[in-house]
Nucleic acid binder design. Sequence first.
DNA 1: GGTTATGTTGACCGTCCGGTCAAGCTTTCC
DNA 2: GGAAAGCTTGACCGGACGGTCAACATAACC
Lengths: 220, 220
Amino acid sequence: MDHRPPDHRPLDHRLLGRRAQQRQQRRAQILAAAEQVFAAAGFEGASMAAIAGAAGLPKANLHYYFGTKEALYAALLEELLQLWLSATEAIRPESEPAAALEAYIRAKMAWSRRRPQASKLFANEVLRGAPLLSAHLAGGLRELVEAKSAVLRGWMAEGRMAAVEPRHLFFAIWAMTQTYADFETQIRLVLDVPALGEAEFEAGVATVLRLVLGGLALRA
Amino acid sequence: MDHRPPDHRPLDHRLLGRRAQQRQQRRAQILAAAEQVFAAAGFEGASMAAIAGAAGLPKANLHYYFGTKEALYAALLEELLQLWLSATEAIRPESEPAAALEAYIRAKMAWSRRRPQASKLFANEVLRGAPLLSAHLAGGLRELVEAKSAVLRGWMAEGRMAAVEPRHLFFAIWAMTQTYADFETQIRLVLDVPALGEAEFEAGVATVLRLVLGGLALRA
DNA sequence: GGTTATGTTGACCGTCCGGTCAAGCTTTCC
DNA sequence: GGAAAGCTTGACCGGACGGTCAACATAACC
């Protein structure tokens, strides 16, 4: 039945990697399902059975790959934190302040639009006191904020933007942009629309840009 | 042993109300404990046994007063929603825009400082899609936002503040102020302080005021 | 081809949780 | 004083959940 030629390449990397490849695909499959279920139900509310169902795999298989529910959750969070941190790239000393902040705000808003579950998951974890993430928040995130705050302080010293406490400015931008993912339900109900679409995100971007750029005297 | 004089006032309201009084006190006692536990662990993560322990009562007693866990949670949410809504009182047509918005922002910030658990509880519910609150959000909250948005639109038409979409302005203010309660863990870790105190909230108020008032051209 | 390492899976287990209940206690009312 | 109504509580129940395991399947290696 099988007419493929015999394989004479026992050391071929494509063959050697077959298991590793499947292994990676399974992990990604489980993580994707876990993101949906954890975001919708929270850590406690989500069940391994529900995640297994969403992934189309038996429950015991998840335990084979990740050991425990908590380890699966932690793996997911670490993956998402990388995304979270990467959005600050626009803020560099040689950039124009207004353009850099606008790019940053647009990037965060786009993330809220495209990956709302990821944002919700993150919010949930922080809301609970970040039991699995506090080390990363106190480490990598803090360092990043310090570095980017130094850039903003430089711009302030040069008179290129109003003087504010940069870290609180970040808190404000994070809050305003992530609210369109985390509090999507509330925004949807207040606006009386079935779902947040292009128009709502455009209005959100416009509002956040006006407050941040206007508040920092970056636009007349 | 008991030398108190016999009670000749069978119709006295103070006596008639004794049970009702105790009943109300028990309810408040349970609700206060529930607020702590639900905020710390979320709806699914909280157990009736934990709430009972925090309240210093046997678990069966909670069920006597509230029936089910969900009913207890719903009773708590309704109570908190009233607090939430009452903060908008500062925004009235005859007020000065800058003063009204400043009072509103300070009120919301004060609430984040004094009742962080309540804010977290609310955030948790909305994050989950507001299964028990969507009716109130689509009803009372929406009406209130519409009414207050009309006030802001009036000010804009009179040229007393910059023209923005008022509902999105509310989303931004809610997000920025509540983040000091909901994301307190993250803010604490980034700022590298053991707890958010007077100084941190002052800096937060200053930042939010600058963005909102500056963004709306209400201060030079 | 045979042996070993790696994956897969249904069945099972101990624990915890929301909720119930019956028995007893306290207040109210006559 | 005594009956009725309301409140308190320890003990219990069924179900769901995280996690384990042994048996089996597949791929890798010699």
